[in-house]
Design a protein around this nucleic acid. Structure first.
Lengths: 194, 194
DNA sequence: CCTACCGATCGGTAGG
DNA sequence: CCTACCGATCGGTAGG
């Protein structure tokens, strides 16, 4: 039980540890990262980390939870907005790609290191992931002429979820450009009718 | 240096070890799997594995190489086939989803445990992955009216590559049905024109 | 946040 | 393929 009543400075230190962990977990993976490396990246010894956190898995859970919150908040706002179904799809795609681009390391940890979680934490994250898929499902179902919404949702989410593997902030396209290009292709098709 | 001139039985044993490793690596991840667990899954002690393999990373490399070969062979055949561009896209998507469905565990290891590889092996796998993307690029570029082939290829490959995360062989759709649905949606768009 | 340390487990090897 | 073992490293703790 660490940091019961977090001070301002204590919280900042914990954020710093989370950030360093996200970087290391995304680069090498959760199990390949040692507490000693996390300590080194934050300027202290491994043992000292336990004044700020409960354990290694606590770090992973914190990163994943934070990322899930970002995705959920942004897309929930889109779902609740007043706009056409196509416009909502466009906004949701923008939101997703922006969250990914805003913190690629956290996105990578969210999308595939979460599986290293165990017990309650794993169950909790699974719930958050399902909730996120549910939001996209609602948006896609609103599209006019959606004959197979489940397949459509899978296709749309595939495009969104895969971005963390290839998007580079120093590349030629902004997050919004990527999102808009994908949305156009998804709506109009590769045949380019429309 | 193990198995220089593999006997028939020796090769079968090595295959068995690879299969067990693929299952464990896909479930828990490469670094979270111990040689003792792999030994247990193949009915021997950890030390005895080294009569068949050179090291733990050797196992990961073997699994990834084999999976890469399956994807490459199948899609290369599609690219070289005589068919319209749209038909090639359909066949490539079928091939990919069939390979994924045919060995979900290997597909998972291929898609994301490969990052645990180091040095030459990592470089080699990167090369194979790029070659695979190149094949898809060729297929997508043949599509009539392909205004932005790079975005189109990314979208198509996102749909294909994400399947390993959600496809279940005991689910309602066959690999071919999944592939065809995706191909239809990709070509015609969510607006359902056509 | 450090010193000093714990038991457990890791990948791998020698010798048979 | 087993017995017996190696040094290294792991996550974490007690006490200050």
């Amino acid at each position: 039980m660490a940091v019961r009543a977090p001070t301002v400075a204590g919280q900042a230190r914990r954020d710093q540890i989370l950030e360093a962990s996200a970087r290391l977990f995304s680069e090498r993976g959760y199990h390949a990262t040692s507490m000693r490396e996390i300590g080194e990246a934050t300027g202290m010894l491994a043992g000292s980390l336990y004044a700020h956190i409960d354990g290694k898995e606590d770090l992973l859970f914190g990163i994943v939870q934070r990322a899930a919150g970002a995705f959920l908040d942004r897309v929930k706002a889109v779902r609740d907005s007043e706009a056409s179904a196509e416009e909502k799809l466009r906004r949701a795609m923008r939101a997703h790609v922006e969250v990914v681009a805003g913190d690629l390391e956290a996105a990578r940890v969210f999308h595939h290191e979460w599986r290293a979680l165990t017990g309650r934490r794993r169950t909790e994250v699974r719930k958050l992931r399902r909730r996120y898929e549910g939001l996209w499902d609602e948006i896609v179902r609103e599209l006019p002429g959606a004959t197979d919404p489940k397949a459509a949702r899978l296709l749309v989410l595939s495009a969104a979820n895969w971005t963390y593997t290839w998007y580079r902030p120093d590349g030629p396209m902004s997050p919004q450009q990527v999102a808009d290009r994908f949305t156009d292709l998804l709506l109009e098709g590769l045949r380019g009718g429309g």
